[in-house]
């Protein structure tokens, strides 16, 4: 789709906005609808859109596959690590009061923020990795065929 001028210009405008919106959903998820799962999907959609309209090579230059694969594991480790942290501090596993024993609800805020970040990172990573895996095999289809 390289020769569709309108698509390319609109995509350039949209990709940044979508990522920004995804981050908003991620970090404002405690107060309004949203959270790690939705944010992860939205950010992944931004990269997928970029990949579909431009090309796989170009999106992989911005967001290389090795980084994606690391992110997939990093998110899960962040989640499990949050649990281990509270374990180490003498609380129950995933008991976020460990982050601020004097104000348990503040500790909950930190814990939820970290856990949601872990969820978001893993979901983004998995979705982008799946897209890369599919797109890397797709034969080049001319636009007339669709």
């Amino acid at each position: 789709m390289r020769h569709h001028l309108i698509l390319r210009v609109v995509t350039k405008l949209l990709v940044g906005t979508i990522i920004l919106f995804g981050l908003y959903v991620q970090f404002h998820g405690d107060f309004s609808p949203g959270g790690g799962f939705q944010a992860g999907v939205i950010i992944a959609v931004a990269f997928i859109l970029y990949g579909v309209v431009f090309s796989l090579d170009q999106v992989q230059r911005v967001f290389p596959p090795w980084l994606v694969h690391k992110l997939v594991a990093l998110g899960l480790l962040l989640y499990a690590g949050t649990g281990l942290f509270s374990f180490m501090r003498g609380f129950r596993y995933l008991d976020y009061a460990a982050f601020d024993p004097h104000h348990p609800s503040h500790g909950q805020h930190y814990g939820i923020l970290l856990v949601e970040a872990g969820v978001g990172i893993t979901v983004t990573g998995v979705m982008v990795a799946i897209y890369y895996a599919f797109a890397a095999r797709t034969p080049v289809i001319s636009d007339e065929e669709w």
């Binding site: 405690d30 107060f31 959270g35 989640y79 805020h109 939820i112």
Partner: peptide, 23 residues
């Protein structure tokens, strides 16, 4: 929890194990 969004509160805190499994 003291957060307005109950869904997030339940997801990440009360049901943290579930969500860990889902991830």
């Amino acid at each position: 929890i003291d957060l307005p969004n109950m869904v997030t509160a339940v997801l990440a805190s009360y049901r943290g194990y579930d969500t860990l499994g889902e991830v």
